[in-house]
């Protein structure tokens, strides 16, 4: 499977899960801020990706979980350097550069983009 084929399938998943138009699903679109994803939608996306690509996604493998409630990772509404390092190690498909610039916890949701999902699937399938 090529990266373009992965991107097309991911687009279909998002159109289905979030009831958005195909044109809205651009690589840089934020799942939450641009496509309106709410918390349950992230689980829906995981289920639909599993179906579309035939792999299993472990809890916390695609999206970080429990970050907000862990004082090691978040202090006074800001992601700590330790938290950021841990997230980067656990979630290599996510581009954390925006969060490094402005590590407020409220910014975490915005870093999940359409391209994040494409990268995640490509990594899982071993596609360059």
């Amino acid at each position: 499977m090529t990266r373009d084929e992965i991107a097309a399938k991911v687009r279909n998943v998002l159109v289905d899960a979030l009831a958005v138009d195909e044109e809205e699903v651009t690589p840089t679109a934020s799942l939450r801020n641009d496509l309106g994803a709410e918390s349950i939608d992230f689980l829906d996306i995981v289920f639909k990706l599993e179906q579309a690509f035939g792999f299993k996604v472990a809890q916390g493998e695609l999206f970080p979980e429990g970050v907000q409630s862990d004082p090691k990772y978040v202090q006074n509404g800001v992601v700590t350097p330790e938290g950021l390092a841990s997230l980067k190690a656990r979630l290599p498909h996510i581009d954390f550069s925006a969060l490094e610039q402005d590590p407020q916890i409220t910014k975490v949701a915005g870093i999940f983009t359409v391209d994040t999902l494409v990268r995640f699937v490509a990594n899982k399938l071993g596609v360059k």
């Binding site: 918390s39 992230f42 999206f63 979980e65 429990g66 907000q68 409630s69």
Partner: peptide
């Protein structure tokens, strides 16, 4: 499953 919510 309410007790397993992502927000904790």
């Amino acid at each position: 499953h309410l007790d397993q919510n992502m927000a904790g």
